[in-house]
């Protein structure tokens, strides 16, 4: 967002005694994602200065930022008055550059059971659907729903579709899907209402890694086609517990950020000053 844009307004919504919600919008829009992240950075900075006693964590979503507090240490009323006292500085903060990923996807119909329906709904051929999905360079807007589940956008306008009217009871882990303006890789077998285009053999979550999710908010993702043989070989590795995430970084990824323990990355929010 350029500094010429007016600062997006938010309103506070109550969420019991452990959280306050700052809501910016009710649509999926990059400008809300950026505004949510600016507020998050602002709150992290305030907390680092010791001004937000009892802050536990913040949870960004498309529409809002949830500010989670320890009710034994502070109150929603105190939190609101502190935030009123320190408005978000104008001009915004540069969003930290994330990693750039190049993730393999097999678009065979066996793994993309909705390709034909998506083609029919969008007046494209199956191949055009795949090409348009492959052409995108997506931003990881937020993670949520499940550990490691990243909401990536925006997809090509021609691929914008509502969710399926009947969600599937079980979407296989690794399914690559689209809905609304977004695309995702399902980290786990789970129920799901998105349209399935293919299968990605890279695990999105590794509980043994020092940073357990492949994706972080702010990362970039592009997809690369592979055939069924490659998919099978890579899924075999995945099932054998072989996780080598660095091989999926873009060759030209110039990000020098190093990630270790995500709780350490966010230490300002996790270790309130005594």
């Amino acid at each position: 967002m350029s500094s010429a844009d007016p600062q997006p307004n938010f309103r506070f919504l109550n969420a019991g005694d452990t959280a306050l919600i700052a809501e910016f919008g009710d649509t999926i829009d990059k400008k809300w994602v950026n505004a949510v992240n600016e507020l998050r950075a602002h709150i992290t900075a305030l907390h680092a200065q010791g001004k937000l006693r009892g802050l536990q964590e913040t949870v960004p979503t498309f529409r809002s930022l949830a500010i989670v507090i320890d009710p034994l240490l502070t109150s929603v009323t105190e939190l609101r008055s502190t935030l009123d006292q320190y408005p978000i500085p104008t001009g915004g903060r540069a969003t930290a550059a994330g990693y750039c990923w190049r993730l393999p996807v097999c678009y065979d119909s066996e793994f993309g059971p909705d390709l034909k329906a998506v083609a029919a709904a969008t007046n494209l051929t199956v191949d055009e659907v795949i090409q348009r999905h492959l052409a995108g360079r997506y931003q990881v807007y937020t993670l949520g729903f499940q550990p490691g589940y990243g909401f990536l956008g925006d997809t090509d306008e021609r691929l914008h579709l509502p969710r399926r009217p009947e969600p599937r009871v079980k979407v296989p882990a690794g399914s690559v899907a689209i809905a609304m303006k977004l695309t995702c890789v399902y980290p786990w077998d789970s129920p799901g209402g998105w349209h399935l285009l293919g299968r990605c053999p890279v695990s999105m979550f590794d509980p043994q890694a020092s940073r357990p999710t492949l994706l972080f908010p702010g990362d970039k993702v592009r997809f690369e086609p592979i055939n069924a043989n490659d998919l099978q070989a890579l899924e075999r590795d995945k099932n054998n517990g072989v996780v080598n995430w660095s091989q999926w970084r873009e060759r030209d990824d110039e990000s020098t950020e190093t990630r270790s323990d995500p709780t350490a990355n966010d230490s300002a929010q996790n270790n309130p000053p005594a």
Partner: peptide
């Protein structure tokens, strides 16, 4: 459009009866 869930959130899906989230609540 999804927003944060916490233990204690009372969600109401289309059928109209509530679900109270507990410790293992999804994050959104």
């Amino acid at each position: 459009v999804s927003d944060a869930l916490l233990p204690g959130s009372v969600q109401v899906p289309g059928v109209g009866t509530p679900i109270v989230m507990l410790a293992d609540a999804n994050t959104a």
